[in-house]
Simulated assay, not measured.
Amino acid sequence: MKTIHVVQHLSFEDLGIFSELLNHEGYDIHYLQAGVDDLTPAFASKQPLFILGGPIGVYEVDTYPFLATEIALLKQRLALNYATFGICLGAQLIADALGANVYAGHHKEIGWGRLQISDLGLASPLRFLDGKHVLHWHGDTFDLPIQGAHLASSDYYQNQAFCIGRQILAVQFHPEVNYKDIEKWLIGHTCELNKANIDIHQLRQDALTYGEQLTEAGRLMLKDWLNNLSHI
């Protein structure tokens, strides 16, 4: 059986809607906890790797020393062009590993909104998200790596997604979120939501309004990415 390695930085932020499709495609999903598990074998594997989100910043290495190891392993992996999909913090880690700046943004972007897909994005797996609302949940942002092709932006941030060829995909938003599990996010991130004055009732309602469309589009995006990978 094929294997998907998944690095988590927060237990309830998982593969969400991606899980069923990956299982259907014959992948065995292997989760690893950043800061706890040894990530070396997963990062060295030719099998696809997902790096998921979390509430810490890439630049908080002094507070979370494991980030330095994760970034060093990621640099080696990206140099080998092994299939890697970064989401939110995962995308920021990819950007940092490629030499781009990652820093606190000017606006806490939490909520459902449309992307502006670039011309290159419309020729990428992100084309399935064109016109769809996706879940944004971040305060940090990043500069576009020199090697990266810009795929999408939002009303608040220019760099919402980039790729390097077909193997490396990094998205700032959350195409994987299962809207039926949104309550986990609302509970787990309650401090952040209240500090940012986010309307939790509206966030919950928007998940019901837009979640089903994102589920369909997100799975199509993932399947397209998987179908165009090499080294599997």
Rank of each mutant, 00 (worst) to 15 (best):
M1G: 09
I4Q: 00
H9G: 04
F12L: 03
G16L: 10
I17D: 03
I17K: 00
E20M: 01
E20A: 01
E20V: 00
N23G: 11
Y27M: 04
D28V: 11
V36D: 02
D38L: 12
D38M: 10
L39M: 08
T40A: 05
F43M: 09
F50K: 00
I51Y: 05
L52V: 05
G53M: 11
G53R: 02
G54E: 09
V58L: 00
Y59S: 07
E60A: 04
E60V: 11
V61R: 09
V61W: 07
T63D: 11
T63Q: 15
T63P: 06
F66D: 10
L73T: 12
L78M: 11
L80W: 12
N81T: 02
A83E: 03
F85C: 00
C88G: 06
A91R: 03
A91M: 07
L93Y: 09
A97Y: 04
A97V: 12
L98R: 12
L98T: 05
G99H: 09
N101G: 11
V102Q: 09
H107I: 15
E109H: 05
G113R: 14
G121K: 11
G121W: 02
S124T: 11
P125T: 04
L126I: 08
F128L: 00
G131I: 12
K132P: 00
H133L: 03
H133D: 12
H133G: 05
L135D: 08
F142S: 04
F142R: 03
D143L: 13
G148H: 10
H150F: 11
A152T: 03
S154P: 06
Q160I: 12
R166L: 06
R166V: 07
I168K: 07
I168Y: 08
L169N: 01
V171L: 10
Q172I: 01
F173L: 03
V177Y: 06
K180C: 09
D181E: 13
K184L: 14
K184M: 03
W185P: 00
I187G: 01
I187D: 06
I187P: 00
H189A: 08
T190I: 14
C191G: 10
N194S: 13
K195G: 13
A196D: 08
A196K: 10
N197F: 14
I198R: 07
H201R: 07
L203D: 01
L203F: 15
D206T: 06
E212A: 14
Q213I: 07
T215D: 13
M221C: 14
W225R: 04
L226T: 00
L226D: 00
N228F: 10
S230H: 15
I232R: 04
